[in-house]
């Protein structure tokens, strides 16, 4: 079908290109500043074309061990957290996907209720405290061990696995756990990989649990470290001068250092992104909506 591509096409592309520029330029500028020499920034009216290349910001942030430690904490939280996430989500979703599981609906309702209601900030905080997890790395992992949304996606997926596959193994005397490990898991790898990546990004991006439960700075993950650097202002909440200080504080850290830290913090996500993207059109995310 050949079609005339007149002005509507031009308008559509102009809008899309404009938005793309709007999204790319701020990120591009961050990278640029992180590699720039402060003198070069001051000289140019608009710093959008790189005129200097300077690694001093990076040298500085990697000179102490704070950033390494923060990266280490983030790495532990991401690796251990994602493993726990995917293990609990997979086995839980598999069990719940079985039609013949007595009490299945009660479990499902119980899980869905938690999407609508939760104890709220303070009761959850008190729970974590009672468990003795304050200032423990596990406080950034266990309270978020299952994402209900991802659980439902997995569950929806497992329902599509043909029962005949499992029946034959059952006849050979395998139990449900063996069926899951030997038959279902191998054929479910694409979905599991997708959910794993989503979990990994979530764990890497986690700052809120850290802010709540971690007060020892040597256990700060990268996100919280960055946050402290960017918005020191919040620490001076009670200060009457806080508002006026806000603008000053933004200049206490040299811009280059902040931006280099931003780049370091977002780098892992950038590396994972191409793999994540493959799963967008797979429609994995839409499954949950049809519930």
């Amino acid at each position: 079908m050949v079609e005339k591509r007149g002005w509507p096409n031009v308008v559509i592309h102009l809008i899309l290109i404009f938005v793309a520029v709007l999204i790319l330029v701020p990120m591009y500028n961050v990278v640029l500043i992180s590699f720039a020499d402060p003198g070069a920034i001051a000289k140019q009216a608009i710093y959008l074309i790189p005129t200097s290349f300077d690694l001093s910001s990076y040298k500085y942030i990697f000179s102490g061990d704070t950033v390494f430690r923060a990266l280490g904490v983030s790495a532990i939280v991401t690796i251990v957290g994602t493993l726990i996430n995917i293990a609990l989500t997979t086995i839980g979703a598999y069990a719940l996907s079985k039609k013949h599981l007595p009490g299945k609906n009660a479990f499902l309702v119980g899980i869905l209720i938690t999407m609508l209601f939760n104890g709220g900030l303070i009761p959850i905080y008190l729970t974590v405290k009672q468990l003795g997890l304050i200032n423990s790395v596990m406080s950034m992992i266990l309270p978020l061990a299952i994402n209900t949304f991802y659980l439902i996606i997995m569950l929806t997926y497992f329902r599509t696995v043909p029962e005949a596959l499992e029946e034959s193994a059952k006849i050979d005397g395998a139990n449900d756990i063996q069926v899951l490990l030997r038959i279902v898991l191998p054929i479910s790898m694409p979905t599991i990989a997708a959910i794993t990546l989503f979990y990994a990004v979530d764990r890497w991006n986690e700052w809120w649990s850290a802010l709540l439960y971690i007060s020892e700075t040597n256990k700060f993950p990268m996100q919280l470290y960055l946050r402290e650097m960017l918005v020191d202002v919040n620490k001076m909440m009670n200060n009457a001068y806080a508002a006026s200080m806000a603008s000053e504080m933004r200049n206490t850290y040299p811009e280059g250092l902040k931006m280099a830290t931003v780049v370091v913090t977002m780098l892992p996500v950038m590396c994972i992104y191409p793999f994540l993207q493959r799963f967008f059109s797979a429609g994995v995310m839409i499954g949950s909506l049809k519930e």
Partner: peptide, 17 residues
């Protein structure tokens, strides 16, 4: 298989309620 999931929801969702 369901045990860890139930434990999670009880401890971190229902107990705080």
């Amino acid at each position: 298989l369901l045990l860890p999931l139930v434990a999670y929801y009880v401890v971190f969702h229902y107990y705080p309620m």
